[in-house]
């Protein structure tokens, strides 16, 4: 291996690492606020990318029907829940809100489908549509069991992962797609050829991380989420609705995951079931950050990306083994340096 190969591998590893970092941030955020480990994050990633691919080919993406179906279900659930509580009039309003907004989005997307709008509009629509799946999943699946133990939430999250994989196969088919690159240009720095696309991935990841930091540090909603993650009961006493916090964190996470999909779509071919292994790598990154620290999770993900790139050069047959074995020393190290505290329930 000479220096130029090492530089190429590092570039590749950092690009992938940036994507894992975004996923890790989504995982950490959702876990902190709702105690759900977002196993289906990979599916949201693929759905985001495949939605954009469908727009690109001038089809109406299957996501439209998926979101519409979930919206109707969420509306009914909300109406029934409120009606049971005796909030007759608000039942209708709640249902209209939960079903109405996603249905409107779906209708807009269906209108956009065959019309080849500019790439930016297609990306925005793909993010919005997939983003809508986040709160809908929260409403239909997790809100009714929000107080269950972490283990139950994890098992349900695994179930959601399988359901979404199946739905993705139904709506998008078995074959993979690529999305058009934002830029196919590249330039040389010395012996190293740098593609603009990978720089874009890095820049937008950094931007997303900065935006998240700003959101949690400076805005009221961000602070409300942060408060919920620190102390759910305390936040509730201060008038923050944990249901709202849950829905908001799921929405943010879904948009983040879809964004990863949009970034990675031009670099690799994505299939309906590609997401799981990508999200697992983000998960390893998040674990390095103890599922709590955003900067550590981002750094851990970059590390995972680099390890992956270099092991694919030296021992391609054992690449996944090497990446996932990484989690054992990390867990050992974390269990030694952190104080274990029992969950209070």
């Amino acid at each position: 291996m000479d220096l130029s190969i090492a530089a190429l591998l590092a570039q590749d590893g950092i690009t992938n690492g940036a994507i894992y970092a975004l996923l890790a941030l989504a995982l950490v955020m959702v876990f902190a606020v709702t105690r759900v480990i977002l196993v289906p994050s990979g599916e949201l990633l693929t759905i985001g990318a495949l939605t954009l691919a469908a727009f690109d080919q001038g089809h109406v993406p299957g996501t439209v029907r998926l979101v519409a179906g979930a919206a109707v279900l969420a509306g009914v659930i909300e109406a029934v829940r409120r009606a049971r509580r005796g909030e007759g009039r608000r039942a209708l309003a709640g249902a209209a809100l939960w079903a109405g907004i996603p249905l409107a989005l779906a209708a807009l997307a269906a209108w956009m489908g065959p019309r080849k709008l500019p790439l930016a509009a297609e990306v925005a629509m793909a993010l919005a549509l997939t983003g809508a799946l986040g709160p809908l999943t929260w409403k239909i699946v997790f809100e009714p069991i929000a107080d269950a133990s972490v283990l139950v939430l994890l098992i349900v999250a695994v179930a959601v992962h399988f359901v979404l994989t199946g739905l993705a196969l139904y709506f998008f088919g078995a074959e993979g797609s690529r999305t058009p690159p934002f830029s196919s240009a590249s330039f040389d720095i010395g012996a190293l050829r740098v593609s603009v696309q990978s720089l874009l991935v890095l820049a937008t990841s950094a931007l997303a991380i900065a935006a998240l930091a700003l959101f949690f540090g400076r805005t009221l909603y961000g602070k409300a989420l942060h408060a919920t993650s620190v102390n759910r009961l305390g936040a509730r006493l201060c008038g923050i609705s944990p249901d709202f916090a849950g829905a908001l964190s799921f929405a943010l996470a879904a948009v983040l995951c879809a964004f990863c999909g949009v970034l990675i779509g031009p670099i690799t071919t994505l299939y309906y079931d590609s997401g799981f292994i990508i999200s697992l790598k983000g998960f390893v990154g998040a674990i390095i950050g103890g599922l709590a620290s955003y900067p550590l999770a981002a750094a851990g993900s970059l590390f995972v990306g680099l390890i992956e790139a270099f092991s694919s050069f030296w021992a391609s047959a054992y690449k996944e083994v090497i990446v996932f074995t990484l989690i054992i020393p990390v867990l050992l190290w974390r269990s030694l340096v952190t104080h274990h505290h029992e969950e209070d329930e």
């Binding site: 190429l8 591998l9 590749d12 690009t15 992938n16 994507i19 990675i264 670099i267 690799t268 299939y271 079931d273 590609s274 292994i277 990508i278 992956e308 790139a309 270099f310 092991s311 694919s312 050069f313 030296w314 391609s316 047959a317 690449k319 996944e320």
Partner: peptide, 13 residues
């Protein structure tokens, strides 16, 4: 060299 169906990158190989 080897790679997996769902690999996002095969640059190393």
């Amino acid at each position: 060299e080897k790679y997996n169906r769902n690999d996002t990158s095969v640059t190393g190989q």
